[in-house]
Amino acid sequence: MSDSPPPRSRAVLLTHILPSPDGVGLMRRGWRWACELAAAHDLDIVLVTQGAEVPVPRTPLPGALHVVRSTGPALKRRRLTDWFEPDAAAAAALQALPGPVPARLVVFRFYLHDAAAHLPPAWRAVAEMDCDDWESATRLSLAGLALRRGRWRRAAAGLAQAWRYARLERRLLPAYRVVHLAAFEDAARLARLPGMGEVRATPNRLVAGPRAAPAPPPPEGRTLLFVGALFYPPNEDAVLWFARGVLPRLRRLVPEVQVVVAGRARGSLRRFMARKGLIYAHEPADLEPLYAEATAVIAPLRGGGGTKLKVLEAWHYARPVVATSHALRGLRAETGRHALVADDAALFARHCATLLTDPARAALMAREGERLLREDYSLGPSADAPAPPHPLG
């Protein structure tokens, strides 16, 4: 008798981004899927790209990487922002992918549907779609942000995109065996669409590997930190709203406050931050020193989709959070326990002042946030056992 283990089943992750545990939000969610699938199966990561060079992974991937490039004219034009439109060569490569039918096939993001449509029919029968964000709702939210800032053309374009995405969601998503979304609110609403099958709230999770205990905030510190891709409209809007509406009020309460904004910003936003006295950290290679100097983290977001990894990251570094209600959507966070929440500029300023001047309150909230992260949103050795789904009532 042979003592060799039985062969493992196979899983496939179809993605447009290279999964990484320390990249932007999409890369981290891709990593979440790669770890979950690789824990129970032999994983093939099929990366579809439009001619770009594939970067060398900083962290070894938990599966075999296969690259499918699309460089010619698209087979079908959708007129949708971010939609991946494969050419004939990419379609042929996807149809010819070798190997048995996978036990699980996860398509990462709705805008890869036209790529997934060229997979072998037996593969498509087991396909799951991870929308992450609910695209039509996100586009509608972005249009709302543009309206608030008087950008009428951008708002109209966003509304048109939301309408087109909504039509495709109703027509295409029911074909998938399971549809995943990051926020339980989105999953509950999507599940009520006609013809939908199983819809799961599959939350974002951060890597929770071994590390040193987070550094405590500096004594008498007065520093707030905001981290985000500042070219993304919701993050840009968050900085503008905070600087214009919150910061003047906060400076009257805590005159010595400092605000650090980390990310990649356009020149106009950099100049705005300089005029307002915000400290800008351009694409820092390591965020840990910035978190070490921060007393608290702010998440003044008023639009966008999904759940916000910046909140989870703040808890990862044991920092208390002041957030809008939108920034906490999809998370099991209790107001006053895991974060201070305000959608009004004056109240947001008072909450920031509380955490800057009450170290005991700030430390307690940081501990509660870190505990919630460990319990519900950590990606550890048991990545094969996903967090329990949120009820879809």
Rank of each mutant, 00 (worst) to 15 (best):
residue 116 A to D: 09
residue 258 Q to I: 01
residue 362 A to D: 06
residue 59 T to S: 10
residue 161 Q to N: 02
residue 129 M to V: 05
residue 235 N to D: 08
residue 132 D to C: 07
residue 236 E to L: 08
residue 198 E to C: 11
residue 228 G to P: 11
residue 105 L to N: 02
residue 153 R to Q: 11
residue 378 S to V: 01
residue 266 R to A: 14
residue 257 V to T: 14
residue 240 L to I: 07
residue 297 V to Q: 03
residue 94 L to N: 08
residue 59 T to N: 05
residue 359 P to M: 05
residue 347 L to R: 14
residue 163 W to A: 12
residue 111 Y to R: 01
residue 174 P to M: 15
residue 208 A to N: 08
residue 60 P to H: 10
residue 196 M to L: 08
residue 40 A to M: 07
residue 5 P to T: 08
residue 318 A to C: 11
residue 315 W to H: 12
residue 268 S to Y: 15
residue 141 S to W: 07
residue 28 R to G: 01
residue 362 A to T: 01
residue 32 R to K: 15
residue 379 L to Q: 04
residue 232 Y to R: 01
residue 298 I to L: 08
residue 268 S to A: 15
residue 165 Y to A: 01
residue 337 R to N: 07
residue 340 L to I: 09
residue 117 A to E: 11
residue 102 P to H: 14
residue 74 A to K: 00
residue 251 R to I: 00
residue 4 S to I: 15
residue 250 L to I: 11
residue 273 M to Q: 06
residue 212 A to G: 11
residue 301 L to N: 09
residue 30 G to M: 09
residue 223 T to N: 12
residue 319 R to W: 08
residue 144 G to S: 14
residue 121 P to E: 09
residue 390 H to V: 00
residue 340 L to E: 12
residue 69 R to V: 01
residue 234 P to H: 12
residue 215 A to Q: 14
residue 65 L to E: 05
residue 331 L to Q: 07
residue 166 A to C: 04
residue 272 F to Q: 00
residue 332 R to D: 15
residue 155 A to D: 14
residue 297 V to P: 02
residue 262 A to T: 12
residue 290 L to F: 10
residue 113 H to T: 05
residue 310 K to I: 04
residue 362 A to W: 05
residue 44 D to S: 14
residue 287 L to G: 01
residue 308 K to H: 12
residue 341 V to C: 15
residue 221 G to L: 13
residue 13 L to V: 11
residue 10 R to T: 10
residue 262 A to S: 10
residue 119 L to R: 02
residue 176 Y to T: 05
residue 293 E to Q: 12
residue 306 G to T: 03
residue 39 A to G: 10
residue 21 P to G: 04
residue 112 L to W: 11
residue 270 R to T: 12
residue 149 R to D: 15
